[in-house]
Design a protein around this nucleic acid. Structure first.
Length: 773
DNA sequence: GAGTTTGAAACT
DNA sequence: CAGTTTCAAACTC
């Protein structure tokens, strides 16, 4: 395949002598710098010079660390010159702060605690985000002449410079290998000295996680958000030179996510998403609550077929033991070969699609978990650029502990031994080995139904599965996708994560003492247990190690992670106490606000606690005035900032508030009143589906602990995603509730016409907005 | 290891 | 939409 250089090279506009050299003009930096502002161009020029100094004299080292081997990309601007001029590796290795082959594994597993290991001399000069961005490209260019691609995203301890950890990406193209070797190592930026530890922890588990939708859809439109992912400024977002590197760089957008999760705003988000690719909430890639989480997004080309929803790449590359490990290989390669190996090289020139890799060790169980709140606006930048509406989900499999031990050499024997076991034994063994990675034992479903855990999780079956007549394999890609499409046509959320993770209060996180744990999760659809009392793994909530919530229809819930009824009462009590003491104050606050200020900002700040208690408005607004759904996000802030429910209090939090502040205080009061009214109408079962699950349950039902009131059919799908909650609202809802509904519906993003399901939803939304307006 | 229980998914 | 069947995981013996 011909991987020609980026065809859209931008003509030179720089007259800097630094770029007068043909070699320079051939260099990736030339294109890169030509798109930059003068200042950046000057920097880029320096980098380009440095780049040539290094690469014309010394080719970069070739890493042979654990990696994915695939077709290489060996064509890029100026490559030939660089290669011809290449000499020994060692010098360059030293220059670049890169390590020779035999040191790489150690480096990869060391947590990157030494800045000298990864930070280049240039980077040391300037550590601004801009320069970091330049460095990413710089290093990419530096290493480009050889075709072994190495992406090392590391966290470097700041013990030398006392500054924040640095991310760095090293790209190495090894000319002499026919492979493109991708090494992705995640470091942690947010965790201070724990970065290495966290990284180590993230070495647990590699989950073959596929995005079925990827292969379905892409129509050739390229969308890269690599720049944003790497912290590049807008100046660079259209720069695609070298294209291959641009795409490759997508593989490691750690900094982007890390900074996002760290609350920093230094990342400029590239709105490279074509307008025909609207954001879908299920495509959102969310940073994890814990600093230990890192997310990688990368570009995978069309034609890949399945690609990984989630790959614990750090595992792959951090462990030397991966090599030669049959199980790990077979487990990895179906995905990686598809997602990366088979097509990565083509992505260099035509990168499309996304691979999202989410490392998250703190997730309970093996359930797919998705944070459904605190979705920063930037996450939309991760939206899968695929145009096909079927690509609903960024299915993040926060598998727990697909423990790295499964790749340990000692497990090799176990793997072989396991193959000789009976299916059950194999399954148990596998379960033991993986502690969360999917293994199925399907007999009749051909692993093409949701019965199959692998299929349901969006992953291919692997040899260690005990399934029979399995079609959930890469070779049956078409069948799998068709089947998946069918299932999604019935239920668009069929493959969505079943457990949503809240960084704020949730029914699942009420402790016995009534405290609210900082993180929470809940099963989106809830369980329907009758006999297990939610105390066995039959219960999906229990299995996911989350508490039952009002969304569950279980009976006699005894879920040790959070009883449904207990949760309800705790929350109701909380609400009751709160409301009695503070409603008056809040109303006074309204008056105060109305009297004291018309300033929207002040209103917003002062009203934050009110939004917290009303809890019916997932709307928030950003500084840009864009409203987005993040009520929980707000609640987080309000709690963190120690909200005092008194009028006029200003909150330190700069977080977006969640009430619709672009209306007058009068209207705000009306909203509040509606909310109060709605509480009085809590007997309306439909309301349960509308309001957030955090709404005090005393207002929803008076069920006894052991006889849950069914507010909906046991078979009714009722994912609690805010976007879908409105479905549960009956036409007979009282006006106040309709007002609330409107409030929510207005926050709905425009979804692609996924299926009849969402079509109806869109229609519903449109109709309602039309009538309500 | 076989059989049973369970609840989700699929079907009607 | 509701009832029934199918299915596979979880569980028990």
């Amino acid at each position: 395949m011909d991987h020609s250089p980026e065809p859209n090279r931008i003509p030179t506009t720089l007259s800097s002598p630094s770029f007068s050299s043909p070699a320079v003009q051939e260099s990736p930096f030339f294109n890169y710098a030509s798109n930059l502002s003068p200042i950046k161009s000057a920097k880029a020029t320096r980098y380009a010079q440095r780049f040539l100094e290094i690469n014309l004299s010394t080719p970069p080292p070739v890493f042979t660390s654990p990696r994915i081997d695939m077709q290489r990309e060996d064509s890029f601007p100026g490559r030939d010159e660089m290669v011809e001029a290449g000499v020994e590796d060692s010098k360059n290795s030293a220059d670049l702060g890169l390590r020779p082959d035999n040191e790489v594994p150690q480096l990869l597993t060391s947590g990157f605690t030494s800045p000298n290991e990864t930070i280049t001399e240039v980077e040391a000069l300037d550590r601004t985000a801009e320069v970091r961005a330049l460095m990413l490209s710089d290093q990419a260019a530096e290493n480009q002449p050889s075709s072994s691609l190495k992406l090392v995203e590391s966290t470097v301890d700041q013990r030398d410079n006392g500054k924040v950890k640095e991310d760095i990406s090293d790209f190495t193209f090894d000319k002499d290998e026919s492979d493109i070797n991708v090494d992705l190592v995640s470091g942690e930026q947010n965790c201070g000295g724990h970065g290495a530890q966290e990284a180590s922890q993230h070495h647990h588990g590699i989950c073959r996680h596929l995005q079925f939708e990827a292969a379905m859809a892409y129509n050739g439109t390229t969308s890269t958000n690599s720049n944003s992912l790497c912290g590049l400024t807008d100046d660079t977002k259209n720069v695609r030179s070298p294209d291959s590197l641009s795409n490759l760089k997508n593989l490691v957008p750690f900094q982007y996510e890390m900074e996002a999760s760290n609350g920093q705003q230094s990342v400029n988000h590239v709105q490279s998403m074509p307008p025909q690719f609207p954001s879908c909430p299920f495509e959102m890639l969310n940073s994890s609550q814990n600093c230990g989480n890192a997310i990688m997004s990368s570009t995978i080309p069309y034609g890949t077929g399945f690609h990984m929803n989630n790959i614990r790449l750090s595992d792959m590359f951090a462990s030397e033991k991966l090599h030669g490990h049959p199980n790990s290989q077979e487990r990895l390669m179906p995905d990686m070969a598809n997602a990366l190996g088979k097509d990565l090289h083509s992505s260099f020139s035509n990168g499309v699609g996304d691979v999202h890799s989410h490392m998250n060790n703190d997730q309970p169980g093996s359930q797919s978990v998705m944070e459904d709140n605190n979705v920063p606006s930037h996450t939309s930048d991760h939206v899968n650029p695929l145009g096909n509406p079927m690509h609903l989900a960024l299915i993040e499999q926060h598998a727990a502990p697909c423990d790295g031990s499964i790749y340990a050499s000692q497990d090799t024997e176990m793997v072989e031994e396991s193959k000789q076991l009976s299916p059950k034994r194999r399954r148990k063994r596998s379960a033991y080995m993986t502690e969360g990675c999917k293994r199925c034992n399907c007999k009749r479903s051909k692993c093409l139904k949701l019965y199959c855990e692998c299929f349901a999780a969006g992953v291919y079956c692997v040899d260690s599965c005990a399934c029979e007549n399995c079609y959930n394999k890469p070779e049956f890609e078409d069948t799998v996708m068709d089947t998946r499409q069918q299932i999604e046509s019935r239920n668009p959320l069929a493959f969505a994560p079943r457990v949503v993770k809240h960084a704020t209060d949730s029914p699942a996180n009420v402790t016995e003492e009534g405290n609210w744990t900082p993180s929470s999760a809940r099963h989106k659809r809830g369980c329907n247990c009758k006999k297990s009392k939610c105390l066995k793994k039959y219960c999906e909530c229990y299995q996911a190690q989350v508490g039952c919530s009002d969304g569950c229809r279980c009976e006699c819930c005894q879920n040790s992670f959070g009883k449904k009824s207990e949760t309800i009462y705790k929350r109701a009590e909380k609400w009751d106490t709160f409301s009695n003491e503070n409603i008056d104050a809040l109303k006074s606050g309204v008056d105060y606000i109305k009297a004291e200020t018309r300033n929207a900002n002040q209103v917003a700040q002062t009203w934050e606690p009110l939004a917290d208690i009303t809890n019916i408005t997932p709307l928030s607004h950003t500084s840009s005035g864009v409203w987005e759904s993040s009520s929980s996000n707000f609640r987080d802030y309000s709690k963190v900032s120690g909200v005092q429910l008194r009028p006029g209090i200003r909150f330190q939090s700069s977080a977006p508030s969640s009430i619709n502040w672009n209306c007058s205080p009068d209207r705000l009061m009306a909203q509040f009143s509606d909310t109060q009214a709605s509480h009085c109408l809590s007997s309306n079962a439909a309301f349960y589906g509308l309001i957030d699950n955090d709404t005090p349950q005393i207002l929803k039902e008076n069920s006894t602990p052991c006889k849950a009131v069914k507010v909906r059919s046991p078979h009714q799908k009722h994912e609690s995603s805010p976007q879908f909650q409105s479905h549960g609202l009956s036409s007979g809802s009282p006006p106040s509730l309709r007002g609330g509904r409107k409030f929510i519906l207005q926050s709905m993003p425009t979804f692609p016409p996924l299926t009849p399901y969402s079509k109806s939803k869109d229609k519903y939304r449109t109709d309602f907005e039309a009538t309500s307006d």
